[in-house]
Amino acid sequence: MGDLAGAVADHDTALTLAREISYRPEQARAHDGLARAHRDLGHLDIARDHAQQALDLYATLDVPEANEIRALLADLGQP
């Protein structure tokens, strides 16, 4: 809702918790959120890194969100 720094903090917390319990779907969602927040902040390298990590997890999970992340990576200048 416009608080990008807060979004980064919340997604970082979610990622930490998801890693602690080894829950890959939530790890993927947290990376997805981090990618989008960092993109909006203009941190494109960080956004690409999180988007790639989200894609890796989504692809392993074989879920449709992988296609959304592929599109995000393309928008970020990575095929």
Rank of each mutant, 00 (worst) to 15 (best):
M1N: 11
M1I: 09
M1A: 14
L4S: 05
L4Y: 13
A5K: 09
A5F: 11
A5L: 07
G6N: 01
G6Y: 14
G6V: 06
G6R: 04
A7F: 11
A7Q: 09
V8G: 05
V8F: 05
V8E: 04
A9V: 08
D10N: 13
D10G: 15
H11I: 10
D12P: 10
T13V: 07
T13K: 15
T13I: 11
A14I: 00
A14E: 05
T16K: 15
T16V: 12
L17R: 13
L17D: 03
L17Q: 04
A18H: 01
A18C: 09
E20H: 01
E20M: 06
E20Q: 12
E20R: 10
I21H: 15
S22I: 06
Y23F: 15
R24P: 01
P25C: 02
E26R: 06
E26L: 03
E26C: 12
Q27H: 06
R29I: 01
H31G: 03
H31N: 12
D32Y: 03
L34V: 02
L34H: 06
L34K: 00
R36D: 10
A37Y: 06
H38P: 03
R39K: 05
R39Q: 12
D40L: 14
L41T: 04
L41V: 10
L41M: 14
L41C: 04
G42C: 13
G42Q: 07
H43I: 08
H43A: 09
L44Y: 11
L44V: 15
D45G: 08
D45R: 07
D45Y: 07
I46Y: 06
A47T: 14
D49P: 11
D49A: 15
D49R: 03
A51R: 00
Q52E: 15
Q52S: 05
Q53N: 12
A54S: 02
A54Y: 00
D56M: 11
L57V: 02
Y58A: 00
T60D: 04
L61F: 00
D62K: 14
D62F: 04
V63P: 03
V63A: 02
P64D: 08
P64S: 11
P64H: 08
P64W: 07
E65W: 01
E65P: 02
N67R: 14
N67T: 08
N67S: 15
N67D: 15
E68C: 08
I69Q: 03
I69Y: 03
R70N: 08
A71W: 08
L73Q: 09
A74G: 05
A74Q: 04
L76N: 05
G77F: 09
P79T: 05
P79W: 08
